[in-house]
Amino acid sequence: MKDAIYALMDFSPKYAKEKITDTLNEMENIGGFDDLRLRKSGPFLFGEVKIFVKKGIDVSKAHEIAGKIEEKIKEEVKEVDFFTIHIEPYKERYAKAAIPIDDNKVSEHFGRAEKFLVFKVDREEGKIVEKREIKNPYKEKKMRAGLSCAKFLISEGIDALITKEIGEIAFHMLGDEGVEIYMAMEGIDECIDKFIKEKLKQLCRALKQAGVFHVS
């Protein structure tokens, strides 16, 4: 009986899933998707999927992309009545992170740090594949050292920063470039270990002036 109904509708759950999968694969600015689910209720389909947006795409742009995907899916599969899209950042296999350091400890001041420890992690293997120290060329700069350091680290291609403090302007510059910023609560080795295990607290806002951090 169920097959007969699908035949009359010229529609099947398998067909719908294939069409939606093709649509998702064709969309730009997403690095992949997961957990595609469909549920039938009468003649209609309800669905949801998790998409991974690429680095450098801000929240408003990500929601715009999600809206276009939903619209396209409903065009391709007329039976879809409601479709929920969950947005998550796309994580490459390799991630490059930086930690401001002084005397082999996490620096108390991002822009005035003596050096930056830059390391590359293989997320699949859960290990460091590259590590080096870079002298901070802006340590002695009188004004906006943090901003200059942010630009410098962006040019180094970092994906994440682990720090004890950071000014508002530098924070937003890094964030606009898709750099994730995490709070350093322990020593260097502990920070690296927690970064690999994805257990660091990510900063969603930083107020250096008040000495207050807001974490997500």
Rank of each mutant, 00 (worst) to 15 (best):
T21F: 01
F46Q: 02
V80Y: 01
V77G: 05
E70H: 06
D34S: 13
A7S: 14
D103P: 09
N29P: 07
L38K: 03
L45W: 04
G32F: 06
I30G: 11
L38I: 01
I101V: 13
E18W: 01
I51N: 00
T21P: 06
Y94M: 04
I65F: 15
T84V: 14
I65A: 13
E70K: 14
I57Q: 04
I57E: 01
P13S: 02
V80A: 02
A7F: 14
S12H: 06
V80G: 08
P13G: 09
G32E: 01
A97R: 00
I99H: 05
Y6K: 12
E75P: 11
Y6P: 07
Y94F: 11
A62S: 15
G47D: 02
V53I: 09
V53A: 09
E48C: 09
S60T: 15
I20L: 00
K105V: 08
T84M: 08
H86W: 11
M9C: 08
D102K: 07
I99P: 10
I5M: 11
E26D: 13
R93E: 08
I85Y: 04
I69F: 13
E64R: 15
I20Y: 03
A98S: 10
E92T: 13
V59A: 14
F11R: 06
A98G: 11
S41P: 00
E79T: 07
D103K: 15
G31F: 06
E76R: 14
T21A: 07
E79K: 10
I101R: 09
I85Q: 04
A16R: 03
R37I: 04
P13A: 05
E88V: 05
V77A: 07
K54W: 01
K74Q: 12
D22H: 07
F83K: 00
L36H: 05
F52A: 03
M9W: 08
F11Y: 10
D10R: 13
F33Q: 02
E70A: 15
F52H: 11
E70D: 14
I20Q: 01
E76C: 09
K40I: 05
E70F: 13
R37E: 12
E70Y: 10
K50E: 14
E76I: 11
V106D: 06
N29A: 14
L36F: 07
D81K: 13
G47E: 03
F11G: 08
H86S: 15
I51M: 07
